[in-house]
Design a protein around this nucleic acid. Structure first.
Lengths: 195, 195
DNA sequence: CTGAATTTTCAGGAAAAAATGAAAATACTA
DNA sequence: TAGTATTTTCATTTTTTCCTGAAAATTCAG
């Protein structure tokens, strides 16, 4: 597994960014390598190409598999496991976003719901947790709105999604007009009229 | 600075999640404390309430200020610095998203642009970097589409934004109809018609 | 200016995370 | 099923990150 300087540059960058992305250098480098490799790669090749121990590759691959970011393949006549990143970069992005939601947001939603479910002792006017409760409620509301939106948008087909993206801020104009066509009251007419 | 069990629960959670969010425990706890505190808090109070050293608080606050997530205030007759999280939780979210973009995505955009600018040696059919170039181009295209979209949507006023969120996947229906009103060719008519 | 109050810096120790090599486990072939 | 190829596990070492206390720097009242 020989890597060109061009490829190494990309791989090193992903390794360094790893810490900011909540993954370690190894995992970042492994994924970068898979991402730019047209053919599937086996663990020995990765260890050699990235100059790291075989066991480190094994742990890194395990991590990547738990993120569902790699596909396992087999090559006829070869007993080794070969790995590949999905061809579809949109799919990679969606998987990444979905996994980060599960790891970074869901636990907080659970905590907030639990805390807000606790009954207020006597709802005394001097409740020391009054403000905390309110803030936690605000936070939960925002997170639920955002994650709910994301979940729905994730269902959209590729072309609709790209259309929405390219529309950008122009979505405001479309939204302004949309109340004329609403069917089920989801859309509220906007009377602020700054357009 | 006395904290109730209710408040401590929230603060501890943020501390533990910190590592997943790319901040350390201290910073997570500090922000959680500020977030649920109605009145501004000074550094000594934080150190006491969170049982950590005064110097640790100082470093944590420096970090939070670099994220522009705290507001500095002064209380008449008191020389200490007091800190507060913004009241507006939408603003907090936007700041967070903006800062993460700068730290986690912008460096990669820069790297990709630089790499893709490099001229292909002789465009030989056996260019070993052919596939890597293509993949990096695909990645840059997706990232630019997403960040560009995000930048535009960030400009929208609060009520339009909430409207878009609550619309969720229903945006497809609105998009379908929008081509009737397009002004500048950004919107492509969709003939797949699965509605 | 002086000195007290307050905040910041930073070297060094503590804790956490990552990486390694050896051994164990697993999977497969003959 | 014996033997080999391959992968995984895990105790240990290495590296990185975090936290602290002491000292330095800054701010401000008198």
């Amino acid at each position: 597994m020989k890597l060109t300087g061009y490829q190494q540059n990309f791989i090193l960058h992903f390794g360094e960014m790893g810490s900011r992305w909540g993954i370690n250098r190894t995992v970042g480098q492994l994924y970068a390598l898979l991402f730019i490799s047209e053919d599937p790669v086996n663990a020995d090749q990765m260890a050699e190409g990235l100059s790291m121990s075989r066991s480190n590759v094994s742990m890194g691959l395990k991590e990547l598999q738990s993120w569902q970011l790699v596909k396992l393949q087999h090559i006829p006549g070869d007993r080794k496991d070969y790995f590949k990143a999905p061809d579809d970069i949109w799919l990679i992005f969606q998987t990444l976003a979905e996994q980060r939601r599960q790891r970074e947001i869901d636990p907080t939603i659970t905590m907030l719901r639990g805390a807000l479910l606790e009954p207020v002792p006597v709802s005394a006017p001097d409740d020391p947790d009054r403000y905390a409760r309110q803030r936690m409620g605000d936070m939960l509301e925002l997170i639920e709105m955002l994650t709910g939106w994301f979940a729905e948008v994730q269902q959209l087909d590729r072309s609709t999604l790209e259309k929405l993206m390219r529309l950008g801020g122009g979505v405001r104009r479309v939204l302004d007009v949309s109340h004329k066509f609403r069917r089920d009251g989801v859309v509220e007419a906007d009377k602020t009229g700054e357009g």
